[in-house]
Design a protein around this nucleic acid. Structure first.
Lengths: 210, 210, 210, 210
DNA sequence: TATGAATGAGCTTTCATTCAT
DNA sequence: TATGAATGAAAGCTCATTCAT
């Protein structure tokens, strides 16, 4: 995950490398990305790249993690899902999710990387990386889930890990669907509302059927 | 999609090639799969491979399609979702889905290929292949969706394409979750029930909130 | 040079093969021409091609020779260069040469093959072929040269083979130059006149310089 | 045109690669030349070849250009064709041309490459290379032509481009003819004299026919 | 007489990585 | 701390030709 040496570089040079790598990975995915092209675009030497990073995977992991962190930094911390009832929980979630999507829409390269993530993640050498990355996103989801259960907004009759996985899958599907549509920023809130409504239906506690 | 020559081969040789390719694609995905390895494992010459198939993509498409067809052949046609009310719709869907999952569990390599499908599908050269393949699966989903709406089991206030995409995402997530758990065939029905219950919550028509 | 078997084929099939080969060789030259494409275009089997011809070179040689012969057949036999004086010799030559060029302009594929000839001829395996081909064109040139010398139109102080080679080179250069110009059929006679005039200057007997 | 890296190599290694490539291209022409053979003969790795040159065409261009430059360097700059009358023009041209041919006779491999040049030049990817190369030879020909016209040695009733093309064709033909003869260095001047005499006849201004 | 299945050598090119300096 | 030269394995793919039938 980026040798300490890299962090000692002057920021503008870190940025140059990061940006070059982000563009390359976003454009070609992990496999087809070429370190040679990154090196050339970044204007550093081949030896330096291997001096700063352990290899292609290491670079990929660092870029993904850094950009991902930047995304959350940009959106800000999640709200306090505990404060309120089920209704306020869902509307807070919708708000936050919408903000995330909007931020992501503003970083098309990160979005492209994330979309290629599932492909890259199959590489066994990535599981370590994957673990680190998920620690950046899953925790708040877990906390939101726990909070949702506390306020009675989320069912607790299924394993939490299943709920999380399915929620991520629904989110990814929504992302995919949005990508395949003619983009209309104004209608985003409506779509997000639709998705959250589906999630609510899926994850809300079952009511007894009369 | 496999030159006719290939189909004239003695079945055991077709099988050898198919099996070698399936294993390679399942293990490495399309990109990282090596035709050379397939050729070696199948015990044929390089020229023969290109005599039978038009290239890597062609081989992949043929393997995916063949295995996919085999899966549905094994499970049989979907039931008539129109016959009944919402309740019978959902239970019929659950039954059928459970059968699919059970069959898939018996073909881990096909499962692996399917999991890599979304990654491969990004390749523009695949859209033709993708189209053919989806025609094998999407139609029954669409029909099921339409039937579900007719019998009042599925909401119609959201675009059908969104519902389908999200449903597939949920299914994929479930698949993923099952892969990550210690496999316990006996508990599969319960998990499927849970998933269908979530789908039902997500896709059932909204009831007025009192 | 085409096995006798080939000549027993029904003419339309001979034509199909000949035409397919001509197009391929004209379009790609000898080296880059693909027998596979010829076979496919001709609608015959691979085995048949090798049953009729000895290989790629053999096919090329046959096509070139046949088309070349056809060209001369179309234009007709050269005039009797012996009948007249130097002046009539040169005008007869100009007439005949113009007819050849016009016929060649009507067979762009043969023209393309001829243009690629010098490239193909470097292949040592071609020298036999080359010899055969030249026997179709050189003889009348030799006869014309001899006649020209008899009537006092052509110098005899240089080796005949050199005169012939240079004459061919000048003709090829003219062909090349015509190819590189915007084509204007009406101005062809003028260009031919210019070329023959140059040839006349080059090959006419030296007059004593006063 | 040869990456700078190549020029940093110790001269003997540059020579080894250059020589291997020259021999291969001379023997087989561009198309049939095999980079693998060059690599093997040069005793370098495949990766190194692509580290030094951009590909087959790049190598060819570099070899051709380098050898061509060497030829002119060896012969020296063309004389001042403007100084004198028609008679001195033609004798100066003959002198210079003889020197060129003598130098070329000492580099049979370069001669072979040049002979294959017209074949290689058909490749569209070569037009850039071709342009660079022609700038080394065509200019002095053009200047000589213009000078010849100024001093009244060359006709001006035909397009200059046609004159140049035909002159090159005659030169190439002479080259070809010399190659096909038993080589006799002592008779070269006589042959050159014959050729120049033909050129003079072809390109000298027409005298009025009485 | 005719077929077409089968082949393996060959092609150009890309790439991540190493290592001496 | 930084460089960039050097590499070899691997990739996908084409081809003319052979040969059993």
């Amino acid at each position: 995950m980026a040798r300490p040496r890299f962090l000692k570089l002057p920021p503008h040079q870190q940025q140059a490398i990061l940006q070059a790598a982000l563009e390359e990975f976003a454009a070609h995915g992990f496999h087809d990305a070429s370190l040679n092209r990154v090196i050339e675009a970044a204007g550093i030497s081949k030896g330096s790249m291997y001096y700063y990073f352990d290899g292609k995977e290491d670079l990929y992991a660092y870029v993904a993690q850094t950009e991902f962190a930047g995304l959350f930094e940009q959106v800000g911390p999640p709200p306090d899902f505990d404060a309120g009832d089920a209704e306020t929980f869902w509307s807070a979630l919708e708000d936050y999710y919408r903000q995330l999507l909007q931020a992501l829409a503003a970083s098309p390269q990160l979005a492209a990387m994330l979309r290629g993530w599932s492909a890259a993640a199959k590489n066994p050498a990535f599981q370590e990386v994957q673990g680190e990355l998920e620690q950046a996103s899953v925790p708040w989801i877990e906390q939101a889930l726990a909070a949702g259960q506390r306020v009675g907004a989320i069912r607790d009759d299924l394993p939490a890990s299943l709920l999380i996985t399915v929620a991520l899958g629904m989110g990814e599907a929504m992302d995919l669907w949005l990508m395949s549509q003619p983009v209309d920023p104004e209608s985003l809130p409506a779509h997000v509302h639709g998705l959250i409504d589906m999630m609510r239906g899926a994850f809300a506690p079952r009511r007894p059927v009369h």
